[in-house]
């Protein structure tokens, strides 16, 4: 069993690297060096390039499952609103915040299509 240093819940920033004007044109894809597995509704991500690992809670895992390079951010947002009891604007803010964090950590890539 590996000894682990304290964990870090990644901070949210107000700056956005995702262009909100193009949510229907941006698709999200996991980075090639990242492997994920789901356990008990949560997802563990291992970044082979850095040796770091991350955990996603339930909704984070749902979002991650959509990051296959097929769904646009607008598609993912619609799927969340369809499945969860949430105000649309909050779901979008949370989705973009999470995506930006994952992009900043090198776990996700965004592509225009």
């Amino acid at each position: 069993m590996a000894d682990l240093a304290p964990t870090t819940t990644l901070s949210r920033t107000t700056g956005s690297s995702i262009d909100r004007a193009r949510l229907d044109r941006i698709v999200l894809r996991s980075s090639p060096d990242v492997q994920g597995t789901m356990m008990d509704g949560e997802t563990v991500l291992l970044d082979l390039s850095t040796g770091r690992y991350y955990t996603l809670n339930r909704l984070g895992s749902v979002i991650w499952e959509h990051c296959t390079g097929q769904s646009t951010i607008a598609d993912i947002h619609a799927a969340i609103c369809d499945r969860f009891e949430v105000v649309s604007s909050r779901a979008l803010d949370d989705l973009i915040d999470l995506a930006n964090e994952l992009i900043r950590e090198g776990l996700l890539q965004q592509e225009r299509r």
């Binding site: 240093a5 984070g60 009891e85 949430v86 779901a91 989705l95």
Partner: peptide, 19 residues
Amino acid sequence: MEQKKEQYAQPVVVKHELL
């Protein structure tokens, strides 16, 4: 029939630092 939706909780990612 209205579909019952799941309870929402903010998506969170936690980074773990290995020694």
